[in-house]
Design a protein around this nucleic acid. Structure first.
Lengths: 155, 155
DNA sequence: CTAATATAGTTCAAGATTGAATAATATGCA
DNA sequence: TGCATATTATTCAATCTTGAACTATATTAG
């Protein structure tokens, strides 16, 4: 008995490849970043998103949506990053329910320190194995799957 | 300042697409499986691997490698599945360090019950958006990245 | 204006994962 | 054989995530 007989052969191959590939790429990158840069991947991602935002700050909910993190997960991740001094919060003036997470100088510094390690990990896990054609091909594939970015972030 | 300027434009697009796509596909499938089938995706995956193995059983380490789970993670996941009655353990006769995880009848039943929901989720999140060409394209892409499956499972 | 509803963010407890330490057994080599 | 090293699996404490409940503020409809 096999549970998976209702996908075509190609689809099955795709799905297994998808699971195995994404799992191992992420595991490899996460391990390399933590080992080399001393910061874990999720924290790194928070800092990246903040660094790319205007004034290095984002609303909590906005940041959570980008990271596909639930609200409480983000609250606690930002708590930890705040404790480490890489991020701070400040209340929004216009919408008094709102909170911004802001990248600190220390956060920017650790990000800049970690970035080369991160990039090297991504190259090793991914782009060293792909030629330009496959990269473009992959972009098309992701665009088809993800299309208009209307995700449902968890919760 | 942007941290990511050392990837080409296509590579950057690929990497962002990779993160966003894999994240949202997995989130969608996991949410759908849990909601519809009443079993979470990681548990489901354990049962699938066991169901596909000879005699519906696998060595713990073997199962862990396939799932890219660390040893302790798998130990505890199998603990939970055992408590639910979907899996049981038995010691290996040949290698007395070894333990097999075995699918129980209840485990097979829940797997069969969950499988249609799982498949429908995978179709909705993925294959409904892809034509046959893109599927084949994706297989090639995953093959190039993952090539010979020589992973380093965590730990 | 006010009541009802929606949204932003946090808190708390339960559940899950990580990584180091441990115990038991196997294997390789002198 | 016997010792050193490797492998298999588990345990435990620390860390992290989940999801429901909660507080505070905003928006909408009557």
């Amino acid at each position: 008995m096999t549970v998976t007989e209702w996908l075509s052969e190609d689809e099955m191959l795709f799905w297994l490849g998808f699971l195995a590939t994404t799992g191992s790429v992420m595991a490899e990158v996460e391990a390399a970043v933590k080992a080399d840069a001393g910061i874990n991947f999720d924290d790194y991602e928070v800092l990246v998103h903040l660094s790319e935002a205007d004034d290095h700050e984002l609303r909590m909910s906005d940041l959570g949506d980008r990271l596909l993190h639930s609200r409480s997960r983000l609250t606690q991740r930002v708590d930890r990053l705040t404790k480490k001094g890489f991020v701070r919060r400040h209340k929004s003036a216009e919408d008094r329910r709102g909170t911004y997470a802001v990248l600190t100088d220390e956060g920017l510094a650790i990000l800049q320190k970690a970035a080369p390690d991160h990039l090297r990990a991504v190259r090793t896990a991914l782009f060293d194995k792909l030629d330009a054609d496959l990269v473009r091909t992959g972009c098309n594939l992701f665009a088809a799957i993800h299309s208009n970015g209307q995700d449902e972030p968890p919760k």
